[in-house]
Amino acid sequence: MRIWPQTLLPPVVTTSLYFLIFGALMGPKIGTVRGVEYIDYIVPGIVLMAVINHSYANVVSSFFSAKFQRHIEEMLIAPMPSWVILAGYVTAGVARGIVIGGIVLLIACLFTEVRFAYPGLAAAMAILTALLFSVAGLINAVFANSFDDISIIPNFILTPLVYLGGVFYSVDMLPSPWARVSLANPILYMIEAFRFGFLGAADVDLASAFFIVGGLILVLGGWAWLLLSHGVGIKH
């Protein structure tokens, strides 16, 4: 947060442009999606996209920077269990993801009237999603050996999965095989469950969405803990 021009300002600019172009300018021409104005449909997707990108970016960059400058050694020599190191980085990632998600939500309020059907459910899914991608960012940083390695996954895997995860469209709008293929994308479940918290309707089963996110958190969290415990990528 101390480097807010690098962390808080960019999402303000990019999401304002999303809301302006896709919502205010193109939205009226697209009409409604599942019975709501297009801008109201894309708000949850853009908010969760910001949560995903920034929780991931926070942990992958801060952990890799600690490895690169070797100040991760300050923690390794101290009597700190691996789970505390993991919890520290992940908490920071969740905090940044949620703060930026909140900022994007406030910007959305400038373009449309944001309403919540189930605010608690939306908040739970945002936190779980931030948790999952913070852990994923840490695993990426553990294996990264260069700054290229921390940009490959966000650019070539994460961004396509987010954009194809129903941020800007409903999977119902896709032709038959692609609608089914989209169901293999876990980010679709997160965005749809989060959208349910706003609109009260979703393309996927809510229980499946929470099961997938919870399961992935347990699997990746356990893996990240094992990696730190065995010193993979951080000890010789």
Binding site: S65, A66, Q69, R70, H71, E73, E74, I77, A78, P79
Partner: peptide, 22 residues
């Protein structure tokens, strides 16, 4: 007894290993 053992040690490494932006 790694917690007790580590608490007893202070290390000054050969190469600079603190956060240069802190």
């Amino acid at each position: 007894q790694w917690e007790q053992a580590k608490s007893c040690i202070g290390l000054v490494p050969q190469e600079i290993n603190f956060n240069q932006f802190e």
